[in-house]
Design a protein around this nucleic acid. Structure first.
Lengths: 195, 195
DNA sequence: CCGTTTCCACCTAGGTGCGAAGGT
DNA sequence: ACCTTCGCACCTAGGTGGAAACGG
């Protein structure tokens, strides 16, 4: 997924958020892991941190994002545990770990455990690996029992509808579930009446 | 599912087996559990034991199963671990545990981990609860760290195609995925040319 | 002849962006 | 204006039995 994330990032990635938390992220956040102790247990999880304290709006005439003021009240920050957690290192390392069950919502009252984000705000996904320490008094080592990773190319703007038309095009071209909107030439379908 | 299993059992339940292990069991084997230690860990699993050492054939004229000789060479016996295993008692007890990912095959060489059965042989599903003993030398208690349950109404004949027409009718009427074969009156579709 | 395999139309279940309608 | 919501057609993915073809 690396090349795809890069491609989206160059256009300014957008992710749809809905009230019901209907949508997954696309591209999917997935990682290949090395260097774990095969027999040790780990918990894998993700969260999203605001990139800044700004609210944005999209200027169609210039096809760019403009600052539209201070951020709204911060959404409750949640952690998304990978559903296979906890599992041993050998398990995590033997195949790509995919966070495809993760869903995004703009509903501050969400009680389905989805990740709550403010629309028109920018976020950085963050990935955490927590070592499950079997030792007694393991809290003494808590400060070194986890690692966090941020991949800058996975930053995105949360939106309720796509703003940048080129993002829409790239989603349609690359997401299998959007195949219905593809045309023969690889561009998305033209709106009747448009040129 | 209890009433449904009874209904099938009265007709003589049949379960399709295929080479690829494509099919699930229907009705689905599911249990409601009580009496576990909420904090203790348990592994839940299933296997299938031959009801007898006979091979059967179906007599259409009398609509009944007849013994057709001794059983074929026994299929390799496998265990199907519930995919949520291991989990704590509280987890297992808080909702119905469903073995809907279990698949049946007649392929003796199967390497997809499906349950291998001989067609035209009769089987009794069996359900096991294994207590994960955290004590050292836990093997000393192994003989009392598990329970097994057999529900006679879940017995079935493994087949590659349905034999008893009333079983087919009941599958079509009760399995949501077979809705395409339903007719307005609840009977299955008549074969063109048949009365 | 009897049992098995294969391909098919038809479902369930749920992930897409569209575009009209709704909200502020 | 700008943003959000909703129902929709169209996909992916995979579970059904039918019926014809296949095989000993």
């Amino acid at each position: 997924m690396d090349a795809l994330w890069q491609q989206f990032d160059q256009l300014g990635t957008e992710m749809i958020v809905t009230k019901a938390g209907r949508l997954r992220m696309f591209p999917i956040f997935q990682v290949q892991i090395t260097g774990m102790y095969p027999a040790a247990e780990y918990v894998l999880l993700m969260d999203f941190v605001p990139v800044d304290d700004k609210r944005y709006r999209y200027a169609f005439h210039s096809s760019s994002w403009l600052v539209a003021g201070r951020a709204d009240v911060v959404a409750p920050s949640r952690m998304h545990f990978h559903p296979d957690s906890p599992a041993c290192g050998a398990q995590w390392m033997k195949q790509t770990v995919s966070f495809d069950s993760l869903k995004l919502t703009n509903n501050l009252m969400d009680d389905n455990g989805h990740m709550i984000l403010n629309s028109m705000h920018r976020y950085q996904p963050r990935f955490h690996v927590v070592y499950v320490d079997p030792a007694p008094n393991s809290y003494l080592n808590a400060h070194r029992n986890f690692c966090s990773f941020s991949f800058p190319e996975t930053r995105f703007m949360a939106v309720t509808a796509y703003q940048n038309h080129r993002i829409t095009q790239l989603k349609i071209a690359s997401n299998p579930f959007a195949k219905g909107f593809r045309t023969a030439d690889g561009q998305d379908r033209l709106v009747p009446g448009m040129q």
